[in-house]
């Protein structure tokens, strides 16, 4: 197990390094001069030159890359071009808001999906299963951003029950969390259902029944333990959905998180900030998947190195 953890740690560092590199080149490979793009059209060449120096884009790419990596290791993501605060500070301030939203949504999604998915799996093609699947299909086809807009329209604008924007009290969580949960659930319900149906067809389930174990024991312990393992991975993937989706959901509800920050930065063409937000989100995602893999290894005795 220790060697597995070590190995995964090394792997994670490699991936983070890859992510940093990809981010670096992605922003630079786009045709055009960032400095020029950042400034309004018609800015004199002298000003653009200063901008370029501030961004460091006047230097050759390899040198930029080395500087970038060095700064990154020191925890320096540069300075925002609008507001002149260190990008790191701004992002770290917004991160807890994004994480709170994400964690609550993920937890709720997992609880609800397991409940619904398991009940549906008990009687495939039964009425509950059919209804659950139809609703899941509709929810899966519903774009999250549209749902957010419609929910806001209904509950905040029309009914005025809930705040539409910002982070104020617990009430302000309701709409963004609901939007995320509804978008996340269909996939997880289907996966839970499928994992349980498949596992229930395994030989050990029949063997468990054959030695008289109660249905509760067979399903609650044997099936649950086996079926849950692949679902851990899915939860990791969904963390990506939440993080990536935060850009949209946060901006719809004006939630003070990293996503809103990223979208603002994009609209303002604030390159250091774009780079910083993308990087932080990707790193958080990598860390989550690292934890997911460790959980997986802890749950499944067959993963041993």
């Amino acid at each position: 197990m220790t060697s597995y953890v070590l190995q995964r740690t090394v792997q994670m560092i490699v991936v983070i390094f890859g992510v940093v590199t990809v981010t670096f080149f992605a922003v630079r490979l786009v045709p055009g001069d960032p400095a020029r793009l950042m400034e309004p059209p018609g800015t004199p060449e002298s000003v653009i030159k200063i901008t370029r120096e501030q961004l460091g884009t006047d230097k050759p790419i390899p040198e930029q890359y080395v500087n970038f990596i060095r700064d990154f290791v020191r925890g320096d993501l540069g300075t925002s071009f609008r507001g002149s605060r260190p990008v790191m500070d701004t992002v770290l301030e917004a991160l807890p808001n994004t994480l709170a939203l994400g964690l609550i949504s993920m937890a709720l999604t997992t609880i609800l999906s397991f409940g619904i998915g398991i009940v549906a799996a008990m009687r495939p093609n039964g009425w509950f299963d059919r209804i659950a699947l139809v609703l899941a299909s509709i929810a899966q086809a519903t774009p999250g951003f549209w749902l957010g807009v419609i929910l806001a329209l209904l509950f905040a604008v029309e009914l005025k029950w809930l705040p539409a924007v910002g982070r104020t009290g617990w009430k302000s969580f309701v709409l963004p969390v609901a939007t995320l949960v509804i978008s996340l659930m269909p996939l997880q319900i289907r996966a839970v259902r499928q994992a349980f149906i498949e596992t229930m067809g395994e030989g050990f389930v029949r063997a468990g029944r054959a030695r008289g174990l109660s249905e509760t024991t067979v399903l609650g312990i044997h099936v649950m333990k086996v079926a849950a393992i692949p679902l851990v991975t899915l939860i990791g993937l969904q963390a990506g959905y939440v993080l990536g989706g935060s850009i949209v959901i946060e901006s719809i509800f004006n939630w003070p998180g990293v996503g809103t920050l990223a979208l603002q930065a994009i609209n303002q063409r604030d390159f250091p900030m774009i780079q910083g937000t993308v990087l932080v989100i990707a790193i958080v995602y990598t860390l989550i998947n690292f934890l997911v893999d460790l959980t997986y290894a802890a749950l499944d005795p067959r993963v041993k190195y």
Binding site: V15, G18, V19, V22, T23, A26, V27, V30, P31, G32, P34, L37, G240, Y241, L243, G244, G245, I247, A262, I266, R269, F271, I274, V278, I281, A282, Y285, T286, N289
Partner: peptide
Amino acid sequence: AFPFVLFAIAILAVSP
């Protein structure tokens, strides 16, 4: 290992 929409958004955002 990368929420790719982010990347797509970033690229599209900076493309003229």
